[in-house]
């Protein structure tokens, strides 16, 4: 149930809202109210969001840089990095292709059951990650439906890499689709129709008209999808089996180190993931900014037209 954030609103709009409301007495609070609200909300922000983030880096470096580097350079850490990258490298493209296909079908055509389909696509967000892992154990696990057959053919899915990839695909399933569907619905299909009338083929239309129009939304969805793919813990934890050097992703490695009381090492690996989160937020903010300035909202277009 992640990503209440979408590209629908832009940084530019955020900037002028404050000046717009603070300019007039009628839409302004008394100074003490303003400072009270600011004080409480910023304190809340600092304690609940900022402090945990700071704690990760401080704890990571508590025992010095040497411990930090050795924790990251450890073979198990390196293999965890490798597996995390592998899982993301498979899950993200799969869900990217799915997201584009689903958004094309849903946004550009009318058919019955469309809203129901959108709800189904959102489903993985509302399922607990633990259950996301469980469902694959029930199918592919030793006692699962396909378990005996898989054992016979010596195929391992659960407690192996395929299971981790599957769980990752499941939890990141909706990211790209739910970003693109509202965007493409808002854009309508007139531009595509215009391209067809001008003689473009279906592929040319998609390549030259649709894709440039959705590129920021696509990038946005991919960033969020990737962040979740690399950071997923619960679902992967169920199917992984926690075999060091083999089925350990970075978040699972953090857990193992932590449970072995290697706190500094655990936080060192965690700081890597925290950095990934910060990079994600930076790129996301940048995309929001670009999308905001690159394609003015239809509102702005209407203003210009009149």
């Amino acid at each position: 149930m992640a990503a209440a954030t979408t590209l629908a609103w832009t940084g530019a709009a955020r900037a002028d809202a404050a000046t717009r409301f603070e300019a007039q007495a009628a839409t302004r609070e008394a100074p003490w109210v303003k400072w009270l609200i600011l004080g409480i909300s910023l304190a809340f922000f600092a304690v609940f969001l900022l402090l945990p983030l700071v704690a990760v880096f401080v704890e990571a470096l508590r025992k010095g840089w040497e411990t930090y580097w050795s924790a990251l350079a450890h073979d198990d850490a390196l293999s965890a990095i490798g597996l995390t990258l592998t899982a993301a490298a498979i899950a993200v493209p799969l869900n990217l292709v799915f997201g584009v296909a689903a958004a094309w079908a849903i946004a550009k055509f009318e058919f019955r059951g469309k809203h129901f389909l959108i709800t189904l696509i959102d489903l993985p967000f509302s399922v607990s990650p633990v259950i996301a892992g469980l469902i694959y154990v029930l199918i592919f696990g030793a006692q699962g439906w396909l378990g005996p057959w898989l054992a016979e053919h010596d195929i391992r899915i659960i407690f192996a890499v395929p299971g981790i990839v599957l769980a990752t695909v499941f939890v990141t399933f909706p990211f790209v689709a739910r970003e693109l569907i509202p965007l493409m619905q808002a854009q309508g299909r007139e531009e595509e129709e215009a391209a067809l009338v001008l003689g473009a083929s279906g592929w040319q239309t998609f390549r030259h008209v649709t894709l440039p129009n959705i590129k920021w939304g696509l990038l946005y969805g991919v960033i969020l999808c990737n962040a979740r793919a690399m950071g997923e813990f619960g679902a992967v934890s169920v199917v992984s089996g926690h075999i060091r050097g083999q089925t350990n992703t970075l978040p699972l490695h953090v857990e193992i180190l932590y449970n072995e009381y290697q706190f500094a090492a655990a936080f060192a690996v965690a700081s890597l993931l925290a950095l990934l989160a910060l990079v994600t937020l930076t790129v996301k903010t940048w995309v929001e900014h670009r999308a905001g300035s690159g394609t003015p909202s239809s509102k702005a277009q209407q203003d210009a037209a009149s």
Binding site: E190, E191, E193, A194, A195, H208, V209, P212, N213
Partner: peptide, 8 residues
């Protein structure tokens, strides 16, 4: 609404 390609 003209359907001009907005990115071109």
């Amino acid at each position: 609404h003209y359907a001009l390609f907005r990115h071109m």
